[in-house]
Design a binder for these strands. Sequence first.
DNA 1: GGGAAAAAAGTAACCGGTTACAATTTGCTT
DNA 2: AAGCAAATTGTAACCGGTTACTTTTTTCCC
Lengths: 338, 338
Amino acid sequence: MASIRDVAHKANVSVATVSRFLNDPEKVSKKAGQAVERAIEALNYKPNLLARNFYKSKSYSILVLVPNIANPFFSRLIRGIEDIGQQKGYAVLLGDTRFSQERESDYFGLVETRLADGIIQLAPEHPIAVYEGLSSVPLVNACECCLNTRFPSVNIDNAAAAKSVVDYLISIGHSRIACVLGPDESIAICPVTQHRLRGYQQAMESAGLSIDNALIFPGDFSLESGAKAAEHYIAMDNRPSAIFCMNDEMAIGLIQGLKTAGIRVPEDISVAGFDDIEMARFSDPPLTTVLQPAEHIGRTAMTVLADLLEGKTPEQLNHRLPTELIIRASTAPYKNSD
Amino acid sequence: MASIRDVAHKANVSVATVSRFLNDPEKVSKKAGQAVERAIEALNYKPNLLARNFYKSKSYSILVLVPNIANPFFSRLIRGIEDIGQQKGYAVLLGDTRFSQERESDYFGLVETRLADGIIQLAPEHPIAVYEGLSSVPLVNACECCLNTRFPSVNIDNAAAAKSVVDYLISIGHSRIACVLGPDESIAICPVTQHRLRGYQQAMESAGLSIDNALIFPGDFSLESGAKAAEHYIAMDNRPSAIFCMNDEMAIGLIQGLKTAGIRVPEDISVAGFDDIEMARFSDPPLTTVLQPAEHIGRTAMTVLADLLEGKTPEQLNHRLPTELIIRASTAPYKNSD
DNA sequence: GGGAAAAAAGTAACCGGTTACAATTTGCTT
DNA sequence: AAGCAAATTGTAACCGGTTACTTTTTTCCC
């Protein structure tokens, strides 16, 4: 493999000139530049960026910690990260934590050993205090994050978004409204479920509706758990007329379960989801949901992290991105069926 | 940041001893080992792996080139890669090519500049000859690859798998069977569509059925293109009684389109897909499809690449993993509806 | 306790870039 | 042509690990 010294020798210049030509061609005379260019061509020289990174003590890589890359919301978000990363010269390392604290800790080692310059965390596994204690790892929380930490964050207003869905269900006449939760993490780790639940509660309360705890089913964001929720509601004597699921996949699993049992959606029960994954538009019936701007979240998170890594103070530490209620055919006005 | 020299000084030993303690503790006396251990603890020393990687001229990273990370089949596959990569000490860099030749070429630069040791390619963008010409980049083709290249590959028998689905449709009485294709890449780039088409043709031919070219619709693996295929078939006078889609997402989009137009699945038209993504089980009706062992493909590809990078000749260069026909409710025996 | 072999530890070169600083060349003015 | 500033180029130290080679220490046997 040709090194910079080989190029310098072949071009009859010093290594510094070659280095300057590569990094700041303005600083090199036209004659020298051409000689270097020819030598690079002749030797098929490619700079060894491991050497540059070592000297600069920077890996130009960032790590994305994701609990499950197969989740379509996360994978869209990662596209956004990757897009900006590519533009800004950062490679994206993938850290699939699989909901394991241990794996997450292992991945933090990549930063301590300089193999990653910073982290974008999509869903923390540890209590927030653990990260606060870390010696200044550049870290950006995206979407599922605690607020009021010293880390920048990019997210949506989960409570308001959930409230907007439930408000809508109420506005079309529903009053017995169920709610399928996300994973039941402590609020100290991952408060998404809590925030969306609060939005549900606020909507119900401000409409003067009471909340029946039997209508609140603990899910885990999987299709499977949506199907389980369906079984739960089907077995009830006093079924809800509408069900709000905290993500689209549970909503789709739920609809599938209801339909299998002969319950029609939305005629018998309305169902709404959260995220607006691509599949939401193609489910049967198409799913009413809240759009989360996944790629936008990813792009923003990467932009903030890049600023952080370049020593700039990001103009804004906490980004709240807008959501949008998307009304499709899985919800319909309440009709008394008794 | 504490360096190995700081540790050596604090422990009253040489840097070589510290290095040996870290890499091969057997080579260090108990006394020295304990002193080093205490010094590491006291200084909170973490080795700078950029330095090690530089000296060893190895990045301990591999690059995954994927055309679209949001595709659930690919993201499951990446989980498999990441799993084995983690075990073998390789970090996984993500290269989302977005179907762009230029982006793909940019990513190959990561290997030339030593930032990645090798590549796992999920779907090539360039004609295979381009890669053949590359100066010995360690590369493993997974799933959508040309055969008979000098690169190891991990895939399934696409023709046989497609044939098994179409054989099944024929076995339950269908004869007018349509086919929704994947992206129309030249066979020199990405022969998946061609192979699956061949399987379709072989099944038809060996059953003595003629192929109506009007029944072959060019899709692109997206939900959207499945919906477009639905429009196409709905507009026909002489509709097919069964439709084989080259992936599950198109099948789901197609079913949605058919149902919207009042066509029942499977009563009026049977639909089958390919891949067995998680959503297949939860579509309405649940989708008949072919299981592709996505994680297994990923794990195998990473294992082969790691062997390659460690100089071992992999015991087997071309891996063919088994598929499985999964019969669900989106297909039903042919009934003459005229 | 002497001496040889084995084990442990130390010294310093090395990897291939970058860059501070010094030296040289160029260009311009008078 | 001398003089000086600016532009260009060169030299060599540096980053923090690893490891070949040398030196020192320990072990063990007669």
